[in-house]
């Protein structure tokens, strides 16, 4: 079975965010980056399916030269080879633009399963995977927490709201968007890191990026609406003041 996994590179979680000169994105020139969290889970699912059913795991990322970092990381964790759709524009493109680029790279692969994360930590569109499925002409199912592969297709567990789930069957090829927490993650071993150095990162031309359907005109810190009462002072003083407020004002202790 051939499984493709789409992996986005995003700013590390604790990076102090500041709006850049364009006022439409954040300063990221000297930033540190990491693998989008749900994508790490999508990769983990792919590696486990390969262990069970055999085959190959191909990872794909769209973006500037720097995104090879997350491809290397995926190769070190056990992916077999990788595709890099290289383009600076794709770092801030809309979901359709990114999905188009990913489709260009993945169409010739004709993978049996394409996995994406359910959402990116930066743009948070929550839709690139579903668009990609439509562009590839394959069925999709979203927010997946379990995957069973059968002869005729896949049987997947969708997360619904409020603690509900649902099993869905589909023929393959198919695309699944994977929810965080589907399995415990493995990390790269030293052996994996060494092996990754010999694995392929193939460059793919993005093709024509379609006209954006929308564009960010301004990025800013949201206005604070509700008046939170900040308790100041040393940790000891703040703790005492909070306990007093909870006992005497809020009366919840």
């Amino acid at each position: 079975m051939k499984i493709a996994v789409c992996i986005k590179q995003v700013l590390t979680r604790n990076w102090p965010l500041r709006v850049d000169e364009s006022a439409a994105w954040v300063r990221d020139r000297d930033a540190s980056f990491e693998m989008n969290e749900p994508d790490a889970y999508a990769l983990e699912e792919a590696l486990r399916l390969k262990e069970q059913h055999g085959g190959e795991v191909v990872v794909c990322s769209a973006g500037p030269a720097r995104v090879t970092q997350v491809l290397r990381e995926a190769l070190a964790r056990g992916a077999d080879r990788s595709l890099h759709v290289e383009s600076d524009e794709l770092a801030v493109a809309d979901a359709r633009g990114v999905a188009d680029a990913l489709a260009t790279a993945l169409r010739p692969e004709a993978a049996d399963l394409v996995l994406t994360g359910l959402q990116s930590d930066d743009q948070g569109f929550g839709q690139t995977g579903v668009i990609l499925a439509e562009l590839l002409g394959i069925p999709s199912s979203t927010i997946i927490m379990d995957v069973e592969v059968h002869k005729s297709g896949v049987h997947v567990k969708r997360e619904l709201e409020g603690g509900w789930f649902q099993w869905v069957s589909m023929s393959i090829p198919a695309l699944l968007t994977i929810q965080s927490g589907i399995h415990q993650l493995r990390y790269a071993t030293l052996k994996g890191i060494m092996a990754a150095k010999k694995k392929e990162i193939r460059k793919v031309r993005p093709g024509v990026v379609p006209d954006a359907g929308y564009a960010i005109v301004q990025l800013y810190v949201p206005e604070k609406s509700k008046a939170v009462q900040f308790i100041k002072g040393s940790s000891g003083d703040a703790a005492k003041a909070l306990v007093r407020a909870l006992r005497e004002d809020a009366r919840v202790l």
Binding site: G124, D211, G213, I216, V217, L219, V221
Partner: peptide
């Protein structure tokens, strides 16, 4: 019409204009 949506997990919001 400009739509406002969160980015970076709600740490920022973006004004988004519609094209096309």
């Amino acid at each position: 019409l400009v739509l406002v949506r969160p980015m970076f997990q709600g740490k920022f919001v973006a004004d988004v204009s519609l094209r096309g």
